[in-house]
Nucleic acid binder design. Structure first.
Lengths: 203, 203, 203, 203
DNA sequence: TCATAAGCGAGACGGTACGTCGTGTCTTACG
DNA sequence: CGTAAGACACGACGTACCGTCTCGCTTATGA
């Protein structure tokens, strides 16, 4: 069993003061949602002034994205359970838990990302790429162990697990549960990953 | 059993005037996104006044949700291709196409739903329940035809197909394509639905 | 002592239904002032609809003026006490009482008169001219009795008595009292009217 | 005792920015009247935003009152001609001129004062008390010179001169002229003030 | 030791959208 | 036909927030 330093918690690029601002942002974002979040409220909660916020992040959207990414940084994941099923369940659980807590933030960030290209890029580089690498790593380890065929590792659907769980988290009234993760892994992912594939026919 | 044009567009609850307003909303929403959409602009485009809009929908959020649902109403149509794979591909394509067009609207609606319970309920009753019924119908027909076992029809994951496609649509930079749908159906859904299940084991 | 039919209470030009509307207007005007008076409220109080109001008076201003004049019509005055002092005191008292009650209405009507010329004219013809004639009559009777010199009867200042009392009524905090009228008559008007005048030197 | 430039314009309580706003208000008020005056127009004329206006005056009514009082502040000046008649004529002229210019404003302010007690008080303290002191001063100086008896100085009718002139100014079609002032002073006030009074009889 | 500067809180500012309300016009349906 | 009911276009109200800005006050260093 190979286990690399998956815990990507690189040291935060933010000063303590900035972290206070981001924490305030995260909290208010979760409570009130994106457009009921006001910069004034963030500043007030952190006992700062608006200028202090704007000096660091040029707009509300960028502040919120920074806060979101900061919120994710702490939830670094290290599956390494030794089996594919174990890794997937572990991954799913962590995503679930985080997504349930941060549902409001995720919704907000998604809306804003679609507007400013700078935000996609930040999201892409600082978040999605790491997620993708993590999942691919889990799958490749399973292939190394012989649990699955390398050919089923798809570039198209790599984010099916997190994507569907996030979808469920941001839809009202049906947040994902442990049971959801288990069904998804056992009834969908495993059957899919262990299906018979013709050589080269991957998706 | 071949059945086309099933679950046809039930008659809209809106008057012609209201439909004009919703159409204007939808168009501006798609062009400018949620928070650059102004009620004044909607009213101006429909040659109406703000009061006329607010008389019907008490807030911008509810107007947008109504417009979204109206936009969906026309797309809630029926596969009826005769095979499970055909039905799923057809469903996926329709969802894809619609979700790509309405990505901005969907993002906006999700944010707003999380705030006002009235919006949840509207979404639930007027949209999700119909989607669910449609998909379950497709699966039950496949079971009737003997393509799958009734036991694989899950209440937990019924929305995996639309959910993941919608997730992809609202994430920036990776809108779902025909290829996505095909991979999802052939490599994930079909393997999952045709897996061996023990009697009574649902999920 | 000559006494003509001063009671100018010519029969109202309004139908009973219209009088209801005007009464509602007067009451609401007194309670809330001009611009917090709404046509909807008038219609509601009279169990009528807005169209019914607008059919008779083309604007809020004209409705209010009509109501004001209607309110005045009932307060017709008949001095005829036999002495100048008695007549003036009587006049003053009546004006006082009415103006105190209708202060809000008077304020409102004054503002609106300044805008639509049609309103001055209505006010002039239907109200001021009658007041002026009444006062001049009182003075001429006093001259006939030899109490004053005809020459002191002024066209310039004929409305000093009502004008000052109305001013006092519409200024906040100092509504005119019986004492005000008495002081005005005894200390100002009588000295003025009984002053020595050179022939032709009137003002 | 000759005294000029008495009771000079006490320093304005307003900042330069505020004075700009009040000036714009005054100008638009005079042009369009109270209810055709819009806060947006005031802000636009002063190159300000609505918020800047509302930060200082919580409503249109209070803004207008402040503008009115500001408009008066400059006119609150002193006769000091050396004779009672001269002083009264001078006072009357000044009042006349100002009232004719500000007729629309005065009308507007009167309506609004009757509603908000705060406006009464502002009017009372910032305007009427000063006027009263000015007039009483003129009369006491005349008494000092022996022109009139102290006993004729009345608390009840101190505002007869300004009150009647203002009444005339706000009635449409009969604005006061120089002739009006002259008649009022010579034919009414002087006879009244020089009448024979019994000792102790004031009024 | 003091001044020069940089960061900060406080909060005013121009702009813009919100959601509300009132006017005066118009249409619909009832009696 | 006149009426009650009320939808409608228009436009002002007063509120709230964004992102910019100007003030002084505090620190913190460098001459």
């Amino acid at each position: 069993m190979i286990q690399t330093a998956r815990r990507g918690a690189e040291s935060s690029p933010w000063s303590p003061r900035e972290t206070e601002l981001l924490d305030a942002t995260l909290q208010l974002l979760q409570e009130h949602g994106y457009d009921r979040l006001t910069i004034d409220a963030v500043a007030a909660m952190a006992r700062a002034s608006k200028a202090t916020v704007y000096r660091r992040w040029p707009s509300k959207a960028e502040l919120v994205l920074a806060a979101f990414i900061e919120g994710c940084r702490q939830v670094a994941i290290a599956p390494g359970t030794g089996t594919l099923r174990g890794d997937l369940l572990r991954l799913g659980e962590v995503i679930c838990q985080h997504a349930r807590q941060q549902a409001g933030t995720i919704r907000a960030v998604m809306v804003e990302m679609s507007r400013h290209p700078a935000l996609h890029d930040a999201m892409q580089n600082q978040f999605l790429d790491q997620r993708k690498a993590l999942i691919q790593e889990v799958l490749h380890e399973a292939a190394d162990r012989g649990e699955i065929d390398d050919a089923v590792i798809s570039d198209e659907l790599w984010d099916l697990l997190p994507g569907y769980l996030i979808f469920r988290s941001i839809m009202p009234n049906r947040p994902p549960t442990e049971h959801t993760v288990q069904a998804l892994v056992d009834d969908v992912l495993i059957p899919s990953l262990t299906r018979h594939v013709y050589p080269k026919a991957n998706g």
